[in-house]
Simulated assay, not measured.
Amino acid sequence: MSLRIVFAGTPEFAVPALRAGAARGEVVAVYTQPDRPAGRGRQLQMSPVKQAALELGLPVQQPLNFKSDEALDMLRSHAADLMVVVAYGLILPQAVLDTPRLGCWNVHASLLPRWRGAAPIQRAIASGDTVSGVCLMQMEKGLDTGPVLLQLKTPIGPKETGGSLHDRLSQLGAEVLRDGLALARAGMTLQAEAQPKDGVTYARKIEKSEAKLDWTLAAKSLADKVRAFNPWPVAETELQGERLRVYQAIGLDHNSGKPPGTVLAAGKDGIDVACGQGALRLLAVQRDGGRVQSAAEYLNARPLAL
């Protein structure tokens, strides 16, 4: 049987799932955040999901919220069997969750109950996790608390960045949605497993202020943070009077006994900085207004005093 699907999502992460959901012509409406000012000119910009929906010829709805009867009536008019939500950016009231015949499914970029919330990908890397994945969850009113229908796991590599894991989980999200939809079309009831009460963590939204490197922390922790915050907001520090953004770094076991933040070495291998435990070797950096370059290239133009 075919399904009538309403899709709700906003950022680039949700686009592969939208394409997967729309592959059989079952998406009857796409909900996304209103156009917002962006860029230097502060021109109104469509979300990536809206752009993809228009390319696919799908009708787009952009309510501020679902508090009005008008917004709820419009949603009900689609007579949806299912609503699929992927990084929509809006908490849905119970009236919305109850509208589709099969309720609302959410594709979430973590292995729940670990990393509920807004920034599961970056929080996982910053915390040194070695595995991540995606969950297809039956939505309920709580924040990412619903029972899990399906999940797919993937390792987090030692060189994984927030950007690379985002892209892989985005594709995995589309895959887990395809699997769920295939089962639903076959008339099968997906087995919903309640999330365990142990192991709950919250992935709060990333603030730009978190990008500053705190040299009193362990080198391993800082290296994980550099990976997690690439490509946004990008880790940063000040070395000998100049602000640097750090795109790539590795932790070293070397304990120099020098105060945290001291430059220990600067050469073709990188810039080694003392940490609370070990040392962080900066490998790729960016000066204000400059391009991303290797630490060796940076040092050719601006040698550091040791």
Rank of each mutant, 00 (worst) to 15 (best):
Arg291Trp: 05
Ala52Thr: 08
Leu18Thr: 07
Gln240Cys: 03
Asp129Asn: 09
Arg185Gly: 12
Lys205Asn: 11
Val263Ala: 02
Pro93Ala: 02
Lys205Pro: 02
Gln248Cys: 04
Leu169Gln: 13
Ala80Pro: 12
Tyr31Cys: 08
Leu181Lys: 08
Leu111Tyr: 09
Val6Lys: 02
Ala80Phe: 07
Arg36Cys: 04
Lys225Cys: 01
Gly163Pro: 00
Arg178Trp: 08
Val60Leu: 05
Asn65Ala: 13
Gly163His: 02
Ala218Arg: 13
Met139Gln: 10
Ile125Met: 02
Lys50Glu: 14
Ala228Asn: 08
Gln61Thr: 07
Glu70Val: 14
Phe7Thr: 07
Asp179Gly: 01
Arg36Ile: 04
Thr154Asn: 05
Phe13Leu: 07
Ala53Tyr: 09
Tyr31Asp: 03
Leu64Phe: 11
Gly128Ile: 03
Asp272Pro: 09
Leu97Glu: 09
Trp215Lys: 10
Pro233Lys: 07
Thr99Ala: 15
Val285Pro: 03
Ala211Val: 09
Met1Asp: 10
Pro260Tyr: 00
Ala279Thr: 15
Trp215Leu: 12
Glu193Arg: 15
Leu172Gly: 07
Val49Tyr: 01
Ser110Leu: 10
Lys205Ser: 13
Leu239Met: 13
Asp253Cys: 00
Phe7Ser: 01
Arg281Trp: 02
Pro260Lys: 01
Leu92Asn: 10
Ile5Leu: 07
Glu55Met: 08
Ala265Trp: 04
Ser2Pro: 14
Leu72Trp: 05
Val96Asp: 02
Ala249Asp: 03
Leu217Phe: 00
His166Ser: 10
Leu283Ala: 03
Arg168His: 06
Ala223Ile: 13
Ala235Val: 10
Glu12Arg: 13
Thr237Met: 06
Val85Lys: 00
Thr201Gln: 11
Glu140Tyr: 00
Ala118Thr: 12
Ile250Pro: 00
Met1Arg: 15
Asp98Ser: 14
Ala23Leu: 06
Leu306Glu: 10
Asp198Ser: 14
Pro59Lys: 09
Val292Ile: 14
Leu18Glu: 02
Leu169Ser: 04
Asp69Ser: 12
Tyr88Arg: 04
Ala274Leu: 04
Ser209Asn: 07
Ala23Cys: 10
Val246Lys: 03
Ala274Cys: 06
Asn106Gln: 07
Val49Cys: 00
Leu112Tyr: 01
Gln94Tyr: 01
Arg114His: 11
Ser209Met: 10
Glu12Lys: 12
Asp288Ser: 06
Ile125Tyr: 03
Ala296Lys: 12
Ala126Ser: 12
Leu177Asp: 01
Gly278Ser: 08
Met1Ala: 13
Lys220Glu: 14
Gln151Val: 05
Arg281Asn: 02
Pro303Gln: 06
Ala38His: 13
His108Gly: 07
Asn255Leu: 10
Asp167Glu: 15
Leu213Trp: 08
Pro233Gln: 04
Cys104Lys: 03
Arg24Gly: 03
Glu210Phe: 06
Arg76Gln: 14
Pro155Arg: 04
Gly39Pro: 11
Trp115Val: 09
Gly180Asp: 12
Ala95Leu: 12
Lys141Val: 15
Gln248Thr: 11
Thr10His: 06
Lys220Ala: 15
Arg101Ile: 09
Arg40Leu: 11
Val84Pro: 05
Arg24Trp: 07
Arg24Met: 06
Met139Ile: 09
